[in-house]
Design a protein around this nucleic acid. Sequence first.
DNA 1: CCCATATCCTTATGCCGTACGGAGATCTTC
DNA 2: GAAGATCTCCGTACGGCATAAGGATATGGG
Lengths: 269, 269
Amino acid sequence: MVVFAGQGDARRSMALLWRSDGAGSHGRTRGETRGRPGPKPGLSVGAIVAAAIEVADAEGMAALSMRAVGERLGRTAMALYTYVPSKGELLDLMYDQALAELPDGYDLAAGRRAAVTAWARDLWALYLRHPWMLQVSQARPVLGPHEYAMLETLLGLLRGGGLPPGRVRHVVGTLFAFVRGAAGTIAEARQAEAATGVTDERWWHDRAGLLAEVAPDFAARFPAVAWLESTPPEGPVEEPAPGEPYMEREARRMFETGLALILTGLGTI
Amino acid sequence: MVVFAGQGDARRSMALLWRSDGAGSHGRTRGETRGRPGPKPGLSVGAIVAAAIEVADAEGMAALSMRAVGERLGRTAMALYTYVPSKGELLDLMYDQALAELPDGYDLAAGRRAAVTAWARDLWALYLRHPWMLQVSQARPVLGPHEYAMLETLLGLLRGGGLPPGRVRHVVGTLFAFVRGAAGTIAEARQAEAATGVTDERWWHDRAGLLAEVAPDFAARFPAVAWLESTPPEGPVEEPAPGEPYMEREARRMFETGLALILTGLGTI
DNA sequence: CCCATATCCTTATGCCGTACGGAGATCTTC
DNA sequence: GAAGATCTCCGTACGGCATAAGGATATGGG
């Protein structure tokens, strides 16, 4: 399920997001530790965010608990609350931190379309590296620095294409929606595989058998579906790509097709 | 976060999904109750699914607990387990049941593109009526009868367009990904609004103030973003649509734009 | 009547996020 | 160096969650 970020002290959470210690610098957090009473901080916001991302990457969003993150850092769950106000804020920080992995510029020399394609592929790859990102609510955007940086990058590619600003907004929204939706298909499959240990291949095989059991009249009820499923995935017009599971290859092809449709449409408008 | 369906007894869950009592018929579930010992069932799978959908629609996915569903039916949480193996299976049933609201055919008289557009709009509207649907994992599809019915409907529109089957698969995936992604933006906003009581308008206003506080150099760091945000949403080339909040109108326009891009692209390929 | 079987409930287990307050480290100020 | 303020980290506890186990009770067939 989508996890909603905490709407606690909004000012504090924005300050955390835009804190000056960049990236995963594991640095000091609120001003300087120098000259403050009390024990030296053994952790940092950056370290906690990094640990949380590791947990979420490895075990999936469902396994991301404050206890689990604390354990990875050799602390208890409660120790984290010194640095981060709540789990919701931690999710926001994780999300924005992951976005920092994106490149911040693309070469327009090969053309606008090629650059936007590269941008979309990178975002898609990021979502696949961090499938839990798709489960952080998009409702109230995180509004962190890296989110704006990503947007800035895309706008840099789209601006100057002759589109009016209102149009640009909708194109941006379309690209985000598509990449996100397309990545969701496969990202969640990976999470399910990691969480349950059942490969996608096997799962589909088992389910197909059950489906035939429970709906013996399938082909009659859904002729077009049966037609589609009876045809082979596609011709051999493809590089080998040896290790890639069937599902993933299909998902990638779908992504490329959809992206091409959108950009072709954009070119003819 | 995305909720994963239970991978308990797969056979039982498929049987539940494809149980003969259709739709919300609140009918008998496993064979006939006639001639069985024990008290008469006071509930039914259909009634439980309907109650769960009501809860999720009204209070959001986060508030959907077995206790809440039981309470709505005047029972305890444990009473539900007589009918449904786990919360995960219940989610599958809810998902497939909601899909039953979709029309099962479109008129091709006005052309293929018009029909596909209508199909996409209906799916988008369904997601907005039931925002929690977007939080049910897509990883391992539910594979319920209404999911196949929806697919069958779309394939009925796309088949005969001269596209090879492999291509059709990718176009279908693209349409699903886009509609889902686009609906997510606004559906989650509605859920957040319902859950927190803070309107989107107000939330954005507050956050903008905080952003200016915490990142005073915003316009310099993100010039293209600042440029985009400084331009008015769009010309007055729009019907009044009085009650529609600003965010929703923009989201709807984005959806229409993206759909047009995809279908235009499809037309020129 | 008797008993198998069904529904529904009470209770309990082990997770979760996190409020509260205590223990002890480390600073500034005398 | 002592006092007091302030900080990190932890132990405990609370209420909520899904759900396992088993008991009370109703209902049918024999």
